[in-house]
Design a protein around this nucleic acid. Structure first.
Length: 359
DNA sequence: ATGCATGAGCA
DNA sequence: GCTCATGCATA
């Protein structure tokens, strides 16, 4: 009883070595991905006047901060310890675990890429007006005071995950650039209505939503944590399915995954749920294993002022060029890669938000 | 619950 | 280099 906290279940399965696989990355973005405003010019947009834009964005951000923040400090913890990735266990806990195989869940795949973006806000105003505000007492500019970010390289290892591959490609790649909320998915349209239940593929947001809710409730009833679910998935032995992290389970329950991802994970979690409830009926043992720990990776923390600047830049250009990223990184005194990743994550976030907002 | 990060596959 | 799916580390 009791396992409401974090327990680290077992990690017994050796590694399922798979040769390779393909995670579903490329999934079907066609569905929702098409919503980019896509401005297509990325490299040069800024080229000429971008300085003003940058300054402007930064200034705007600065103004914002000045309003209430006075915190010149920015202890950035940019330190990445290299983790020794030697472990391959699949426990999602503090042990490094990564695992087995591949998989992708996507429904259809095809990437397309969008063209680029171009949207330049008209900024024909005075760029310098706001310019000076930036470096106020807040360390926004590249002023020192903050750390110098010296982190190093994060050599981390790898993680692969596993889920099953659903391979069903249909041929259709249309990428539309404007997203149309049409049936996401795919194909089989099953019955739609209310839940058909039987199906696996059901790209219906409403159904997913209710499933996620029911899932959480039943999971709690079983007394298992999100982390438990994640590692327990590996025990299901579903071809191609390995364990998942607490993060992913959490995101599934809170619907903070992409639609495709939700659709792909649903059948897996559904299978786990049934299995877990069945097992509980006949008393199952509880996993209580722990593992030793390795080195952990340090998470970079971007201070609020810098974050505000990044947001301002993002508003102007969500897809900055490499050069632009480097410039921004320099101004904010952050590592270029940190900035690049921030933009990537921001885009993912925004995409998600847009999608859910549309439904 | 989330922020920052890695990595596969593709353009 | 981007997108996507995921994860570790954290608040």
């Amino acid at each position: 009883m009791m396992s409401m906290n974090s327990k680290q279940p077992f990690s017994m399965h050796p590694i399922l070595h798979e040769p390779k696989y393909n995670p579903l990355h490329s999934s079907s973005e066609a569905i929702r991905r098409a919503c980019l405003p896509t401005p297509s010019l990325q490299g040069n947009i800024f080229a000429g006047f971008d300085e003003s834009l940058l300054h402007r964005a930064e200034a705007l951000a600065a103004v914002d901060i000045v309003a209430q923040k006075g915190h010149p400090f920015k202890p950035d913890a940019t330190y990445h310890t290299m983790t020794t990735m030697t472990s391959m266990t699949c426990t999602p806990s503090p042990s490094t675990a990564h695992l087995h195989h591949p998989s992708v869940l996507a429904t259809h795949h095809h990437h397309h890429h969008h063209p680029s973006a171009h949207h330049q806000p008209s900024q024909g105003l005075d760029g310098d007006l706001l310019d000076h505000l930036t470096p106020g007492g807040i360390s926004l500019g590249g002023m020192p005071g903050s750390d110098v970010c010296s982190s190093a390289s994060h050599t981390h290892a790898a993680h692969m995950s596993a889920i099953n591959h659903m391979q069903q490609h249909h041929h259709h790649h249309q990428q539309t650039m404007g997203m149309h909320p049409h049936g996401l998915a795919s194909h089989t349209s099953m019955g739609g209505g209310g839940g058909g239940g039987g199906g696996d593929v059901e790209p219906d947001p409403r159904e997913l939503e209710s499933f996620a809710e029911r899932f959480k409730q039943r999971r709690i009833k079983l007394g298992v944590t999100q982390a438990d679910v994640g590692s327990a998935l590996a025990n299901l032995k579903i071809p191609g399915v390995g364990c998942l992290s607490q993060s992913t389970i959490c995101r599934f329950e809170s619907l903070t995954l992409s639609h495709n991802n939700m659709v792909a994970l649903k059948p897996i979690l559904e299978a786990w749920l049934e299995e877990a409830e069945r097992a509980q009926r006949e008393k199952m043992s509880k996993p209580e294993i722990f593992n030793g720990g390795d080195k952990k990776r340090k998470r970079t923390s971007i201070a609020a002022p810098e974050k505000r600047s990044l947001e301002a830049y993002f508003a102007v250009q969500p897809r900055p060029s490499s050069e632009k990223i480097a410039a921004i990184a320099e101004k904010l005194d952050l590592k270029k890669n940190v900035v690049r990743v921030w933009f990537c994550n921001q885009r993912q976030k925004q995409k998600r938000m847009k999608f859910s907002a549309a439904h």
